[in-house]
Write a protein that binds this DNA or RNA. Structure first.
Lengths: 195, 195
DNA sequence: CTCTTAACTGAACAGATGTTCAGAACCAAG
DNA sequence: CTTGGTTCTGAACATCTGTTCAGTTAAGAG
């Protein structure tokens, strides 16, 4: 027997991507086999190659799609006061990352499993995202909105702090997302010494 | 031919551990083979089993040794004022992690590659380490040394921020370690709203 | 020098790996 | 009903995986 009834590219394709995303996040790229992905999709391993040229491209496509989404959704209203830009960034980062924990996890953990050219592409987008925060911090430093010793270092500290939310916060616990956002915004605002 | 001239357990043993640590940090546990470790040690794969019962134990031993070292080195003078305990913790965390980037990387990235019982052991030590920071934050809250909305969340935020240093800082750049410690201590002190 | 033993080799094991491909089964259009 | 093209199977490929072990070599003790 070959294909089973009711199977279509429009269904299998997304299913492959979702399954790979979940399994890569759970066990790591290197520890997940094509057969394992195929098994959870409900298909033989060979069929996956209708949707990706190879395993490496599957990882890269997932990471790239995530980064593109991130860049597109990132707030960028530079007409706002620096302090409001910073608040928008903080709240956005927490909410966006909270909505896609698997993709975030992969984007941070599987960088070393990318081929060199693929790595360069992803790393460039990340730099560009983090550059946005650094620009905000530098702007606020200029207007006297706050006082940081080094905008670059402060941006690293803020990003790390915010991304850390994903390691412990899940919806449905004792806190709502907006309460987490409030507390982190408070801490970030204090950390940079906002007046 | 069997063993080559001048080889000893006292040399090969540590070499196996060092090499495994480096390779696991560089490529990830699942992506590194026993043959690859053996090759860099200068030995055949079978010889590794004189030093570890299996690959999983090798990973576990490396992580456990790191966590034991961390717990032993952690400052614990509870006679100090909370603000001084917090400063000591911040400076210690940055310096200790800076000195062993590979071990730190593995301890954070390879948790999911531990067997269930091994994971429980490591996770317990990590919880206990982070609990120390939470206790400090709670103490300072009690004495009015600072004002955080939630000590648990603040401890997550501080840990994430401090651990993030390892992603960008290496000795020999434009900054010295103590300058990084100063800036992070400033940000942490601000973040918790120290008076 | 001889003997014992720790340290290591080299081959072997059974199974898993990513990837390819001829052919089968299905769907939709004419 | 026939045809064409898409989607999938099942087997095969060469290679790699962790691990075991009989046999070999070198180091150190007597």
């Amino acid at each position: 027997m070959a294909r089973t009834a009711g199977s279509h590219s429009g269904i299998t394709g997304p299913k492959v991507r979702q399954t790979a995303l979940r399994l890569f996040a759970e066990h790591g790229y290197a520890a997940v086999s094509m057969r394992q992905i195929a098994g959870e999709v409900g298909v033989q391993a060979g069929a996956l190659y209708n949707y990706t040229p190879d395993k490496q491209s599957l990882l890269f496509d997932l990471m790239q799609a995530h980064m593109v989404e991130l860049m597109a959704a990132m707030p960028q209203d530079s007409s706002l006061a620096p302090i409001d830009q910073l608040e928008a960034f903080v709240r956005f980062h927490i909410a966006f990352h909270h909505d896609r924990p698997d993709a975030v996890f992969i984007a941070y953990m599987e960088l070393r499993n990318l081929s060199e050219p693929n790595f360069a592409v992803i790393e460039d987008m990340r730099r560009s995202y983090e550059e946005r925060l650094r620009a905000i911090l530098t702007a606020g430093q200029g207007t006297g909105a706050w006082d940081v010793a080094d905008a670059q270092i402060a941006s690293f500290a803020v990003i790390a702090m915010l991304t850390g939310v994903n390691t412990w916060f899940r919806s449905g616990g004792r806190l709502r997302l907006d309460q987490v956002q409030d507390q982190y915004w408070q801490m970030v605002r204090n950390a940079v010494g906002a007046s």
